[in-house]
Simulated assay, not measured.
Amino acid sequence: MGDAAVEEIFRRFQAANPAPVSDLRYTNTYTLLVAVVLSAQATDRGVNLATGPLFKVADSPEKMLALGEDRVRHFIRTIGLFNTKAKNVIALSRILIEEHSGEVPATLDALQVLPGVGAKTASVVLNVAFGVPRIAVDTHIFRVANRIPLAVAATTDKVQTTLEARVPASYLLHAHHWLILHGRYVCKARKPDCPSCRISDLCRYPAKTV
């Protein structure tokens, strides 16, 4: 796919949704970090149901630490891997207090050393909270990128590298959300909704639905 086609894809995404936002609900940078950590192997809807009540009582590292692991576990018990995630939330909160004055760091290296924070989580936080033009590749973006194709690669890291190099700079900040939303609601895994796809004429996916 040529550069002109790639630019046209993102021009259409922008025209339809100029300011895309995450489906995860959060109130500040800290709660965004916690929500993304909890979203691993879980749906955004499931995470929101759990974090709504949690964030009402603990929206800072200090409040989360005071809440304690047992109570955090109770709030998030409906989310997959809740035992490990509760430990990670408490541990990362302690590190934020002890090493970052209670603030979420704005660098990839500092984020990735936090418990439960991998490259994808760090990229999401950098993009959403700090306006860093990164594309965190989840299952939706991985599928969409290989289908269209915007980036043909066997790993999420390679897809991310390729996308960040190919997406025009003027669209890079919001590309993460456009691709996720497109994959979640239109270019779905089992049966993509090709008839309603705004980029169907540009997409080269051979198994389009009618």
Rank of each mutant, 00 (worst) to 15 (best):
Val36Asn: 08
Val36Asp: 07
Val37Met: 03
Leu38Ser: 02
Ser39Cys: 02
Ser39Trp: 01
Ala40Tyr: 09
Gln41Met: 11
Gly46Thr: 10
Gly46Trp: 12
Val47Gly: 09
Leu49Ile: 14
Leu49Asn: 10
Ala50Pro: 05
Thr51Asp: 05
Pro53His: 08
Lys56Ala: 12
Val57Leu: 10
Val57Lys: 14
Val57Arg: 10
Asp59Tyr: 05
Pro61His: 04
Pro61Cys: 06
Glu62Trp: 13
Glu62Cys: 05
Leu65Phe: 08
Ala66Arg: 15
Gly68Leu: 05
Gly68Gln: 09
Glu69Ala: 00
Arg73His: 02
His74Trp: 14
Phe75Thr: 02
Phe75Gln: 04
Ile76Phe: 12
Ile79His: 12
Ile79Val: 15
Leu81Pro: 06
Leu81Glu: 00
Phe82Ala: 08
Thr84Met: 14
Thr84Trp: 06
Leu92Gly: 03
Leu92Tyr: 05
Arg94Gly: 10
Ile95Trp: 06
Ile95Asn: 04
Leu96Trp: 06
Leu96Pro: 09
Ser101Asp: 14
Ser101Lys: 13
Glu103His: 12
Pro105Asp: 04
Ala106His: 14
Asp109Tyr: 01
Ala110Lys: 14
Val113Gln: 14
Leu114Ile: 11
Leu114Asn: 12
Leu114Gly: 13
Pro115Gly: 14
Gly116Cys: 12
Gly118Asn: 13
Gly118Phe: 07
Ala119Arg: 15
Thr121Phe: 08
Leu126Thr: 07
Leu126Trp: 08
Leu126His: 11
Asn127Thr: 06
Asn127Gln: 07
Gly131Asp: 04
Val132Arg: 15
Pro133Cys: 08
Arg134Ser: 08
Arg134Lys: 15
Arg134Ala: 15
Ala136Gln: 06
His140Cys: 07
Phe142Met: 06
Val144Ala: 08
Ala145Leu: 02
Arg147Lys: 09
Ile148Pro: 01
Pro149Trp: 00
Leu150Cys: 03
Val152Glu: 11
Val152Arg: 09
Ala153Leu: 01
Ala153Thr: 01
Ala153Gln: 01
Thr156Pro: 13
Asp157Pro: 00
Lys158Cys: 02
Val159Asp: 07
Gln160Thr: 07
Thr162Tyr: 01
Leu163Val: 04
Val167Gly: 04
Val167Met: 08
Ala169Ser: 15
Leu172Met: 13
